[in-house]
Write a protein that binds this DNA or RNA. Sequence first.
DNA 1: TCCTATAAATGGAACGTTCCAATAAATCAA
DNA 2: TTGATTTATTGGAACGTTCCATTTATAGGA
Lengths: 348, 348
Amino acid sequence: MASRAKATILDIAREAGVSKSTVSLVLQGSGLIRPETAVKVRKAIEDVGYVYNRGAANLRKAHSNVIGMVINDLTNPFFAELAVGMERVFQAAGVVPFIANTAENPVRQEEVLKSLMEQGVAGLIVSPARGTTPGAFRRIETAGVPIVFAMRRLPDSRIPVITPDNHRGAVLATEHLIRKGHRRLAFFGGSSDLVVYHERLGGFLEACQTLGIAAADRLIVEGETSRKGGMACLETALAAAEPPTAALCFNDAVAFGAMLALRRRNLEAGADFAVVGFDDVAEAEHYSPALTSVAVDTGGLGERAAHVMLKMIQSRTTRAEDHIGAVSLVVRESSGPDRSKQGMGDAA
Amino acid sequence: MASRAKATILDIAREAGVSKSTVSLVLQGSGLIRPETAVKVRKAIEDVGYVYNRGAANLRKAHSNVIGMVINDLTNPFFAELAVGMERVFQAAGVVPFIANTAENPVRQEEVLKSLMEQGVAGLIVSPARGTTPGAFRRIETAGVPIVFAMRRLPDSRIPVITPDNHRGAVLATEHLIRKGHRRLAFFGGSSDLVVYHERLGGFLEACQTLGIAAADRLIVEGETSRKGGMACLETALAAAEPPTAALCFNDAVAFGAMLALRRRNLEAGADFAVVGFDDVAEAEHYSPALTSVAVDTGGLGERAAHVMLKMIQSRTTRAEDHIGAVSLVVRESSGPDRSKQGMGDAA
DNA sequence: TCCTATAAATGGAACGTTCCAATAAATCAA
DNA sequence: TTGATTTATTGGAACGTTCCATTTATAGGA
């Protein structure tokens, strides 16, 4: 074994005393070859230490078996879970997903997409980086490579999207807080360059409206979507003249930040101020106090995105339906009733 | 644009009125072609919506420009940070890193490695899955593809390894606890099928030995390397006849778990029981109380691994030196002095 | 026996690049 | 002018597969 130059099917053919075509057939598991021959060939494959050259094969074959997953922030466990969900499905389908990280940088994203295209990917699942320009995927679309967006959408594009029902999730969470007796509510974190932000904030506002929370009693604090951002949001909120008693946070990271800031002030989330997160990452359950959060079934959405992609590839189309995933509110300890005015709150 | 069949350099050549060789030269940025010609060709490239076919190119070229990163658990932020560190370096070197996740499963790892090899990667950086068999990389080695292990090593292999100085880190942390007056110490989490476990536990034991902690006063509790595992460890430890007053944890996840379990018992990490973690993930600083932990410079190790890989590729060798990264103890709030016997502790 | 039908194996022409050797054009020295 | 040199460009043969159209071997039917 271990010849310096790498072995090809021709070497195998020579070793096994058959033609290269036969070897190719064996590699593809064709039923046309005699079992004994197949065994002979497979032995030769072992002996020469052959590794299949997919690049060469793709030159002839219509489609490759690799799919690109482009993720905006791999260090965020939320997106990592998404990636893992997709992987499960692809693995079962014999497709190899390659993950690339854009670190929330559109330029890097451009490079990564170019590379993936050059490798001849069969499809692309993308959670676009913040600030992605509307035309960023034009070229890929015209090249006929299917794309699916996951978790985030671009303002106008016609590319299919898999996201949780952000609006509904925010409504659920907000209703929950109001039913707990809170009358002055805040929305923490996020910024308006994200479509998701508008969806979640929209749900919050709608629920406030419906359940009769006056505009003056809603506080919206934009901020980084991180722990740090959450801490800042809480400080801002408590500095207000009539501070809120509860907050729906853009995501769990913001919520964790808010809870941390509370503890620094010797306040307890749940008892002194209600906090609800969004995404329900694994950590939420293990926090103390445990975080009430909107569960979006991240892994499930990843699987769904993968399925849609597989179907698109199979039917060689570049169109597909959007998919809005169901959400549910997981009530834990961080969202207690309003206690700011004892005797007045009508907690449910 | 957007012709159904994808454009090749021949189409470009026709469009620009030159030969395919000229186009190829332009694509490679050769200085041999006349600037005006290059401009003409580049315009044609735009017009026909060309995407480079790296598979075809690799058929002729010696080496590809893709590197595989095989990570055992992408949902662990620690490994995600490692991956991100590597990416930084590779990007700058014009190399495209493809990340694949093995989910700590040797079978999956085998598949992933096979795929990567078939794609013709120039090198492989691997954080091996638990339970990887010693021979798992034999084939890749004999194929002459350089491999670097990151964070974890295999028991016997000669493959270069990039890891933090686990032994020293554990010594530092243990000395710290002892100097804080603790006399009954525990080591929480991990299991002996991991080389890293032995390194860290070894440091712990050595420091105990050196500073005169009797064997009877050391408690070793194996467990899952997760929050859940950490919680279990703490319960086990406190159930002992003479429970420890401090613990060094296998990693931060275990430490977080232990702190959680403490809180559930209405005990406070730092005040009632000292906890030290390992790895110093971003979260450690933002926990409450903030976690004392051994910082290993994850991103830096990733960069280092990437550099080693690049050098190996360049010098077409399959050997390289191991690299043991410096560690430091970051003291925060979770590791207070021993208060179990007031008046007796000689806290420093 | 010969002919036909089926099964198994094969040669050769792609696929889209790179790169060498060769050509064509422009420049220079004499 | 001629030949030598440099500068730009080009055809053609790889690279390692797949797949179609054939060929060869095997079996079955008369």
